[in-house]
Design a protein around this nucleic acid. Structure first.
Length: 578
RNA sequence: CGGGCUGUGGCGCAGCUUGGUAGCGCGUCCGGCUGGGGGCCGGAAGGUCGCAGGUUCGAAUCCUGUCAGCCCGACCA
């Protein structure tokens, strides 16, 4: 039983000055966490309870699919990350440090390398596979801009697991097991979430899905179809593209004088004056970005998107990973790139890489730059007048865009990434040479899956979905305690509260008892609301009539219950969900 | 990396323009009252005013530098 008289807790009456988002504000105010440095937090007793709650559910479900828990150090020598290439690829995101002998170390941002090495060291036969290992551990990433309190920290608690299989079918099975385990985990902690298609990003690999908790403060944008069950991170979304056309069926390319048309808007107006009725969506906007590769090499990349759409840099970057996308402004050294009048015609000859968004299909005709100041061309046709080097999703995605699966309009939402599962493949087993001997006595390269849950972030995400103007309002299944018992007043109230708390605990419920002497009822109630335990039992005035109150934090409902029935009623309420 | 804002008891803030004994609210401690919505009365503890240098008889306040933090942006050719 947690007793508030001795609980290490100080609630704040006012919002902390440095907290903006609800979860940050309330977790600090309610005394769950305290900031130590940017993106680095201490967890106080109530917060630790939440960590234990969530990680307990995670462990139970991971164990249930046969994964086994291990624990790696956070402090790791450089070599494995050198071998995988991530010592370089991770760049400034990696916390690096040196020991007294001058050897390089890092604080683990994620542990593919060590898991791969561990399995390589222990296992050597196909009979040993499949195997799934996981840990719940503190991770370190030196984020450029930590923000939103617990949501994006530099130190955070993560459950990461890894599967090792002989072949793709095995990997698919391990992936599916994790997917189902994640569904059970997030259901059990009472979170609202969506499973969305994702890009695998810097990790490499193929199939990948994210678990997003919808919340306005989320950093990820995802689309979901209004008709079918398709959902995807905008980085990974596939829109329904127009049907390809025979390039030769299009009218001939024509170059026009279009002075003072550096923007799409001005171009459309001038083209209309010239008798070419081209909407913004019929223009081809060619945006130059600078690609920075992991080895530090940079090169310009021109991306063609329909002129009525912006280039979504995050989406572009996700699809060119591990390269980074930077703004390009070095037009002086690239005279072939005529600012405001760039067209894809003959860019290839000039050794500039050119890619298009999937919306720019074969045979489509566009109004676009003519690579000369003051001139544009119309009827510029893909795969006739220009051939892009590749197709990279880069255009901004908008609400109402057609679903790639069924064509119905998509809607857009924000979400917090709380889980990510993906089929990693052989990136790390190649790097470390992880083979097992197969049934025929020949080596088989193992294939991996990698699966993460942000445990601390999930707590913040639950908070983002569970609060009101009075404070936190945890879901029944994800709360630091099941019942908050408050005894107010003099006389018998406190001993009765003690007794009820003890009885509830004897029935297996976790209880937070407000046994602080001399707190006024108002303070006790306000604190109860701020802390957010789902059910509060108040032993107060009505005790004279043999009645206590059972309050539901979320609905605000108050039930008056006979003292003798109180324990049964509360147990039923808690067990019954609600 | 760029822009904006902010550093004053544990927390939230005022004071700075116009230099002159460092204040308020909350919290904490002591005593009393109160006992169903952060209640009341009285008393108390607690601050190198981010740091360094400068101007001045005198600096939280003016000047220079520096460090730190928060927020926003990372952009459409």
């Amino acid at each position: 039983m947690l007793r508030m008289s001795t609980l290490f807790l100080r609630t704040l009456r006012e919002d902390p000055a440095d907290a903006e988002v609800p979860s940050h504000r309330l977790l600090v105010r309610a005394g769950y966490v305290r900031r130590v440095a940017p993106g680095i937090y201490s967890w106080l007793p109530l917060g630790v309870r939440m960590l234990a709650k969530v990680s307990g559910v995670v462990r139970a479900e991971m164990d249930a699919i046969g994964a086994q828990e291990v624990l790696f150090p956070a402090l790791i020598p450089r070599e494995p990350y050198e071998v995988s290439g991530r010592w370089t690829e991770y760049g400034d995101l990696l916390f690096r440090l040196r020991d007294r002998r001058g050897n390089d170390y890092l604080l683990g941002p994620t542990h593919e390398e060590l898991f791969t090495l561990l399995v390589k060291g222990e296992y050597s036969s196909y009979k040993d596979l499949p195997v799934m290992l996981y840990q719940v551990q503190t991770k370190y990433r030196d984020e450029a801009r930590p923000r939103a309190g617990i949501l994006r920290g530099r130190e955070f608690v993560m459950k990461d697991s890894y599967s090792f299989d002989l072949d793709d079918e095995g990997l698919q099975r391990s992936y599916d097991l994790h997917r189902e385990a994640y569904i059970r985990i997030f259901d059990r902690v009472g979170m609202d979430y969506r499973i969305v298609a994702a890009v695998s990003g810097a990790m490499g690999g193929s199939a990948s899905e994210e678990f997003l908790a919808p919340a306005p403060t989320g950093e990820d944008t995802f689309v979901s179809c209004t008709a079918c069950d398709y959902a995807a991170n905008t980085e990974a979304v596939q829109l329904r593209a127009p049907e390809p056309v025979d390039p030769e069926s299009q009218p001939a390319i024509q170059v026009l004088d279009t002075p003072d048309t550096p923007t799409i808007e001005t171009l459309v107006a001038v083209l209309a004056d010239l008798g070419h009725d081209v909407p913004a969506s019929g223009t081809l906007k060619n945006v130059v970005v600078l690609l920075r590769h992991p080895d530090g090499r940079t090169e310009p990349l021109v991306v063609g998107v329909p002129g009525d759409r912006a280039v979504d840099l995050a989406r572009l970057e996700a699809n060119v990973a591990p390269a980074e996308v930077l703004p390009f402004d070095d037009f002086d050294r690239h005279p072939e790139l005529v600012k405001g009048y760039i067209g894809p015609q003959r860019l290839a000859e000039k050794k500039v890489r050119y890619v298009v968004d999937p919306l720019v299909v074969t045979g489509s005709a566009w109004a676009t730059g003519a690579n000369e100041p003051g001139r544009h061309a119309v009827n510029v046709v893909r795969d006739r007048d220009f051939v892009p080097e590749g197709v990279v999703p880069a255009a901004e995605v908008r609400a109402g865009d057609p679903c790639g699966r069924c064509g119905a309009p998509l809607e857009i939402g924000r979400g917090i990434e709380i889980g990510h599962i993906f089929q990693l493949g052989r990136k790390y087993t190649e790097a470390f040479g992880l083979d097992v001997l197969g049934p025929l006595g020949t080596p088989v390269r193992v294939t991996m899956g990698s699966y993460g849950i942000g445990v601390s972030r999930a707590i913040a995400a639950i908070a983002e979905q569970s609060y009101d103007d009075k404070g936190l309002a945890w879901p029944r299944s994800g709360a630091p305690a099941a019942v908050h018992v408050v005894g107010v007043g003099k006389g018998d109230h406190r001993p009765v509260a003690e007794r009820i708390a003890a009885e509830l605990e004897a029935r297996g419920l976790t209880v937070l008892l407000d046994d602080r002497p001399k707190v006024s009822p108002g303070v006790a109630f306000k604190d109860a609301e701020l802390l957010g335990i789902p059910t509060t039992v108040v032993i107060g005035k009505s005790l004279a009539d043999g009645v206590v109150e059972v309050r539901d934090r979320r609905s605000g409902d108050i039930r008056r219950v006979a003292l003798d029935d109180a324990v049964e009623v509360v147990v039923a309420e808690v067990r019954g969900g609600g």
